[in-house]
């Protein structure tokens, strides 16, 4: 288990490019996964990932550790950049429509992920999860719905959503960590 690299983040905030490189190495793959899950296009996801890290570099001063984790901050930037793209004219002019796919549909149908070892393992874990868990994790983690909007989307009371989300994450965590 690795802790948040606070020193590196501080050094990046003061303009240290080497520290930025390390931060990039640590978070880029997970953020790329989140972006790809939203935009569902490999080339676009790479462009957005690049933009996200430029934003991280340019705005690192606005990350305030009192407000939460660095990963959470970067996750929000990634989701927002991806959603902005989907709303953009460029996307609307393209062939893709807004999709209601969840991350498991993407995992199973995407040609871009077939050979990734990480994807192979993820499929194994996901197969053991309850279908409702997949919906919950998709809405809360990948799509970043606010808690109340997520409850409406899944048609369940918000208290139930919170406890079920916790249970689903524990199930996934037990598989991933063991």
């Amino acid at each position: 288990m690795s802790t948040q690299p606070d020193l590196l983040i501080e050094r990046m905030k003061s303009g240290d490019q080497t520290a930025f490189t390390r931060v990039y190495d640590r978070y880029q793959e997970a953020l790329h996964g989140v972006i790809y899950n939203i935009v569902k296009n490999k080339d676009v996801s790479e462009e957005i990932l690049q933009d996200v890290f430029i934003k991280i570099w340019n705005n690192s001063d606005s990350y305030d550790s009192a407000q939460g984790r660095f990963f959470t901050w970067a996750l929000n930037i990634s989701r927002n950049a991806s959603i902005d793209y989907l709303r953009s004219k460029r996307h609307k002019d393209g062939l893709k429509n807004l999709s209601t796919d969840n991350f498991v549909d993407i995992l199973e149908t995407s040609d871009d992920l077939d050979e990734s070892t990480n994807a192979i393992y993820l499929k194994k874990w996901i197969n053991k999860l309850e279908p409702m868990c997949i919906k919950i994790i998709d809405v809360i983690f990948f799509k970043g719905f606010t808690f109340n909007d997520g409850a409406k989307e899944l048609d369940m009371p918000s208290g139930t959503l919170k406890t079920r989300h916790r249970k689903c994450m524990m199930a996934l965590r037990n598989m991933i960590m063991n």
Partner: peptide
């Protein structure tokens, strides 16, 4: 856990 989950979706 979230990071590993998301990493599995990175092309």
């Amino acid at each position: 856990t979230y990071m590993k989950l998301a990493t599995g979706l990175a092309p």
